[in-house]
Design a protein around this nucleic acid. Structure first.
Lengths: 296, 296
DNA sequence: CCGTATTACGACAGACGTAATGATA
DNA sequence: TATCATTACGTCTGTCGTAATACGG
C-alpha cells in the first residue's frame, strides 16, 4: 500500500482510464497497469473492472480510505514544511462565507493579507495542506459547544464568536411579529436550500432531532455563497432561511425573528495547524480569541 | 514520506535508540540510520537529536501526524482484508467498560462470541484495524447527540441506548435526599477520578462549561475498569462519581441522585468499519439498533 | 482495426547488509 | 575504550520505460 500506488489508483478510478491517468501522472500506460496490478496483488482483491474501467465494491471501499489517507499525507508534509520555511510575510486566510462577522473583519491587519472564501467542508483541508495559514469556519451548535469539524489532520480550533441565529421571513409573513420562533413549528414550512451560504437544511433536521430525510422541505436551491442574497431571497418570499443575526440584519423587506428553540447559536472558530499558531498568524489569533469570552 | 520510513521513525523516537529500533524492526543499525537520513533529507529538517536520541520540535510534530497516518493505513488494509476473507464464524467484540448495559448483554448470541473491554479511546482503533468486528462505546452527551469519537477511519456509529446519569453519593450525604442535582452545585466537591471506568472529569468540566483545568477536583484516582468498584468507592465516601443509572444501581451504602442539569445522558453506540456491517455482526447490529428509538 | 490494457524484458535507481570510520560519554 | 551513529560500498531487488502482445468494441 505504497502511497504512490494509492495515488495512481485514485487517479485511474477518477478518470476511468489507465492511459488518461498515465498522462496526468507522467507515467507510461505500462507503469500504471503495473501499479494497479501491484495493489491488487498486495491486497489480494480485484479493485477495478476493465472495459469499462470502474471500481469494484472493494475498490469503492478503498477509495474512501485512500482519499483521506493522501490528504493527511499532504497535510503532514505541508505542516513540516512550515517548520523549514522562513515565516512568510503575507498571511493567507480562508473562511466559510458566514464565518466573517464584522468584528472579525475589523481585526484583520491593514496589509499583507489574502482572504479567500471556500465551502464550509473545504476549509479544514485548506488549512491542513498549507493552502492557508489560518481558517475561519462557522456552524450552528448548542451554546459553547465546539464545532463539529472533519478531522483531516491535527488542527487546533479556537472560538472567535457566538451570536444568535435568526429566522428570516418576508416582512408581511404571519409569524413576522413573534418575539421568538421554535424550529419545531417550522418543520413543515418551505425553506431555502443554500448549503454554501446558509445553514444547511440537514443541520436543521439534525438539530430538530427528527428522522434523517424528513421535514424542512427545500423550496428554491441557491448555490451561491453570498449570505445577503440568501436573506434577500427569503425576504422575497422564496422560502425561510436561518442566518446569524449580523448577516441578515438590515435586509430590506425582511423580518428577523430570533430562534428561541432549540438552543442554537452561530459559532465561528479559527483553525490552524498544529498546537500553536505560527508566524504572523499568531498575533491575529491572539487578538481574535482573547476578546470577551475568549479561547477554549 | 514512505510509510516504511515513518514506521522506522516512530519506532526510533519511541525507543530513543537507533540500534534498539533496528532490533525491533528486523533491520540493521545501518538501515535505520539511512531511513532517518532519508526522511530528514526529504523534509529538509532535522527530526532527531543524536546522543541522546530525542525528537526535535519538528520531529514532535511529525510524530503526531505519523501515528494517525500509520493507524489509518493499517485500518484501510484491515478493512479491505475483510472483503477478501471468508466471513468469519466467530464474532469479536470490544467495548468500553460502561458500554454494556444489561439489555445489550442479553442480546448477544449464545455462542461464537469473544468479548473484550478496552479503554474508551482505544475502541475505535480496535474496530478500524480489524482487531474487532464490532465495538461498543459510551459517553456522556446531550440527549440524542452523537458521541464525539476520534475518527481514525471511515467507521459507522449507531445508537444502541441512552439512559440517565446519576451522581453516586454515600447514603448519609447531605445531598443524598435530593430529587435531582445540578452539576454547577458540585463543581467544588471532591470527585473520584476514574477515567477508564467512569465518566472522565474532563468531560464534566467541559459539560459544565467552565475553564479547562478548574473545578471537579480529583480525590482518589482509580485506574481499574470496573464500574461497580467506582460506585463502591463513592459509597465509601472517597469522592463523588457520575455513572449511568444501571451501572450504579444496587450498590450497598450508595445513594443515587439523577443528574438534572446540564442535560446529559449516558449514550452507547455500536461502531463498525465501512458503511454497513458485514458477516455475523450484521444480525447483532440490527437487533440492537432497531429497538425502541433505533438507528440514526 | 484501432484504442487500450497486459506481458516481456532490459536498464537503472534505491534499499539493505557488511564493514570500516567517526563521535561521544 | 566501549557504545552507538554514520559513511562507504557491493549486491540485489524492484520499478520504470520500451516494445511486443492480447483483448474488445
Amino acid at each position: 500500500m505504497d502511497p504512490h500506488l494509492l495515488r495512481t489508483y485514485v487517479t485511474v478510478a477518477r478518470l476511468a482510464s489507465f492511459s488518461e491517468a498515465a498522462r496526468v501522472l507522467g507515467y507510461t500506460q505500462s507503469a500504471v497497469s503495473q501499479h494497479i496490478a501491484a495493489l491488487e496483488g498486495d491486497l489480494g482483491l480485484p479493485l477495478l473492472t476493465r472495459r469499462p474501467v470502474a471500481p469494484t465494491p472493494a475498490g469503492e471501499r478503498l477509495l474512501e480510505h485512500a482519499g483521506s489517507l493522501l490528504l493527511r499525507l499532504d497535510a503532514a508534509r505541508a505542516d513540516l514544511a512550515r517548520f523549514a520555511a522562513a515565516p512568510r510575510e503575507t498571511l493567507t486566510l480562508v473562511a466559510s462565507p458566514l464565518a466573517l462577522p464584522p468584528r472579525t473583519l475589523a481585526a484583520l491587519p491593514a496589509s499583507g493579507v489574502t482572504l479567500r472564501t471556500l465551502p464550509r467542508d473545504e476549509v479544514p483541508a485548506a488549512v491542513a495542506t498549507g493552502a492557508a495559514d489560518l481558517g475561519f469556519v462557522d456552524g450552528a451548535v448548542a451554546p459553547s459547544d465546539p464545532l463539529r469539524l472533519p478531522d483531516v489532520a491535527p488542527l487546533t480550533a479556537r472560538k472567535v464568536a457566538e451570536e444568535p441565529l435568526a429566522v428570516v421571513l418576508p416582512a408581511g409573513h404571519p409569524l413576522a411579529g413573534r418575539a421568538g420562533l421554535d424550529l419545531a413549528d417550522l418543520v413543515d414550512a418551505r425553506w431555502l436550500d443554500a448549503p454554501d451560504a446558509g445553514i444547511p437544511l440537514d443541520r436543521l433536521r439534525a438539530a430538530h432531532g427528527g428522522p434523517a430525510g424528513h421535514g424542512f422541505r427545500a423550496a428554491l436551491r441557491f448555490e451561491g455563497t453570498e449570505p445577503r442574497t440568501v436573506a434577500a431571497l427569503a425576504a422575497a418570499g422564496h422560502g425561510l432561511a436561518l442566518l446569524p443575526l449580523s448577516a441578515a440584519h438590515g435586509t430590506p423587506g425582511a423580518a428577523l425573528v430570533p430562534l428561541a428553540a432549540p438552543r442554537l447559536v452561530h459559532r465561528v472558530e479559527t483553525l490552524h495547524a498544529g498546537g500553536e499558531p505560527v508566524g504572523p498568524a499568531v498575533e491575529l489569533v491572539r487578538r481574535l480569541t482573547t476578546r470577551p469570552g475568549g479561547g477554549r
